[in-house]
Nucleic acid binder design. Structure first.
Length: 299
RNA sequence: GGGGGAGCGCCGGAGUUGGAGAGCCGGGCCGGUCUGUAAAAUCGGUGCCUCGUGCUGAGUGAGUUCGAAUCUCACCUCCCCCA
């Protein structure tokens, strides 16, 4: 049984489509389960802001890896990969079809492929590198990286320079090549569907979604998360800082920029099967995905 | 009706007061990178074309000048003040 993966820009309706698809699959006697691949929906206490499936929606389709990280906890792609692999393998062993759904490109690749991620580094090392970075600037650390690592990283790219510096100081060999990220060799057979739609409609959906989040209490949610000591990785959620200062328009704008980055991922993913949902509802998209499943890959 | 100020590329801002710019800053928009922080971080593009470093361009029209975004005149639009 193939894993089904559903990707697409924020506000494209991934969750709704997954639920509709699950209902169609159940009519065929399957017992599907959604596996979240969204880096923010993993947190407990950011459900509104991250657009996580609501209790009603979860009653219609069981979701895994949703809202299980404490708001003050840090999370990572590597940790996600371990958990996602375990969930997918277990579901397949039980004969239940996993529907991997979410908008984080790296997490999706990590769920479907074996990325061989480098280990996590001790927090002391991370802190030391960050102090160095703050004091000497990214270009200085960039210049100290081995040639083969430096070539692919821009001198301004603080995050990657920091990460690579950490690994080098610990004597861990980072990946020289990044081919693996786009590998066509998946851990388990999967069909990947990418939801697209015309840009105007996407923007309208994003605006409506942000408004709905605010109406549903996203600002209070963010204040609560802030008061509860939200971790750095949780605070990275789009809208977190924006809503803390009451700037809803900035959140809309950031969501649009995020959607663009997600589309960049989607265009590059091997064997992605695009479904244009412009003017269509979730149920239509679900039927289209099911029809393509029946027709076979790349049809 | 009178006085003052301002008009350029998707938007806002600054600046240039005769040797010029398809230029600066910010935003928006569009594209790219991505291996344990990824909703992060980061790079680039954004007048037109036949892509040469080519063409057009500083509200509109005329004028002065070797040369005008800059000076002059008229007109248009917007803003402020006074009636």
């Amino acid at each position: 049984m193939d894993v089904i993966a559903i990707f697409g820009p924020t506000a494209a309706g991934k969750t709704g489509v997954a639920i509709e698809l699950a209902e169609l699959l159940r009519e065929r006697g399957e017992d599907p389960v959604a596996v979240n691949c969204d880096s923010i929906q993993v947190y407990e206490g950011l459900e509104i802001l991250s657009g996580a499936a609501t209790p009603d929606e979860r009653a219609r389709l069981e979701h895994r890896l949703l809202g299980f990280v404490a708001i003050d906890g840090e999370f990572s792609a590597g940790r996600y990969a371990q958990l996602a692999h375990a969930e997918i393998d277990q579901l397949l062993a039980e004969g239940r079809r996993p529907i991997v759904v979410g908008g984080t490109g790296l997490y999706l690749r990590a769920a479907l492929a074996e990325l061989e991620m480098r280990p996590q580094v001790p927090s002391e090392v991370r802190a030391a590198v960050e102090a160095d970075l703050a004091e000497r600037g990214p270009a200085a650390l960039h210049a100290e990286l081995p040639d083969e690592l430096r070539s692919g990283v821009h001198p301004n790219d603080r995050k990657r320079i920091a990460r690579l510096t950490e690994l080098v100081r610990l004597g861990i060999a980072p990946h020289a090549s990044s081919e693996g990220l786009w590998t066509e060799n998946l851990r388990v057979p999967a069909r990947l569907f990418g939801i697209t739609l015309e840009r105007d409609e996407l923007h309208a959906r994003i605006n409506a979604r942000v408004d709905a989040m605010v109406a549903a209490g996203a600002i209070d949610e963010v204040k609560r998360a802030d008061a509860a000591g939200a971790s750095r990785t949780a605070r990275a959620a789009i809208g977190f800082e924006e809503l803390l200062r009451g700037d809803v328009e900035a959140m809309r704008s950031a969501q649009r920029a995020f959607a663009r980055r997600q589309l960049t991922w989607m265009r590059k993913m091997p064997h992605v099967e695009l479904v244009d949902r412009t003017g269509r509802d979730d149920a239509w998209v679900a039927r289209e995905i099911l029809a393509r499943l029946d027709r076979g890959p790349d049809s």
